[in-house]
C-alpha cells in the first residue's frame, strides 16, 4: 500500500493515534481558557484560530509544529473557542509531541507539563549528553 504523504505535520501521525478530545466536544467544553493562560486575558491563545488542514477543521500546536484535527461538529460562531479548548486539552494532557520529548531531552529540572499543569512530574534531573558509538572527541576538545 502506498504511503500517505503529508505536506504538513499531523499530530496524529506523530503520536500514532488520535485522542478522545478530538472527537468529543463534551470533554473540552468546560475548560476555562482564561484560567489556563497567564495574565488577565487569553494571552497567547488570542493568536490561535481554527484552521482547515486536509479538508478537516484543525488547530496548530506550536509545541510540535503539527496540526491537530477536530472531528466533532463545532457550533457556529464558536470555532476559535473550541480550537483553543482542544489545543489546551492537548497541552494539559501532555500529549503534544513537543512536550513528550521533554522527558528524554530537557537539560534542567522542570515540570513535565510546564505552565499547563504545575503538579506534573519533574523531569530533566539527570540529563546526560548524547553519545555516539565509535565517535571520539577531536584533539583539544
Amino acid at each position: 500500500m502506498a504511503e500517505t504523504r503529508h505536506v504538513t505535520i499531523d499530530a496524529e501521525q506523530l503520536a500514532g493515534r488520535s485522542y478522545p478530545y478530538q472527537h468529543d466536544m463534551a470533554l473540552v467544553e468546560r475548560i476555562d481558557l482564561v484560567a489556563a493562560t497567564p495574565g488577565p486575558d487569553l494571552n497567547w491563545l488570542e493568536d490561535i484560530h481554527l484552521l482547515v488542514e486536509e479538508g478537516m477543521p484543525a488547530v496548530f500546536d506550536r509545541y510540535s509544529n503539527s496540526f491537530l484535527k477536530i472531528y466533532f461538529d463545532i457550533p457556529p460562531g464558536r470555532e476559535d473557542e473550541f480550537a483553543r479548548k482542544v489545543l489546551m486539552a492537548h497541552l494539559q494532557s501532555g500529549n503534544s509531541y513537543g512536550i513528550a520529548l521533554k522527558a528524554k531531552h530537557c537539560k534542567f529540572p522542570q515540570h513535565m507539563l510546564g505552565p499547563w499543569d504545575e503538579s506534573s512530574e519533574i523531569v530533566g534531573r539527570d540529563w546526560k549528553p548524547p553519545t555516539m558509538a565509535g565517535w571520539e572527541k577531536p584533539s583539544g576538545h
Partner: peptide
C-alpha cells in the same frame, strides 16, 4: 528583553 517568549506577561 523577553526574546522568544512563548507565553506569559
Amino acid at each position: 528583553v523577553a526574546e522568544n517568549m512563548m507565553s506569559g506577561v
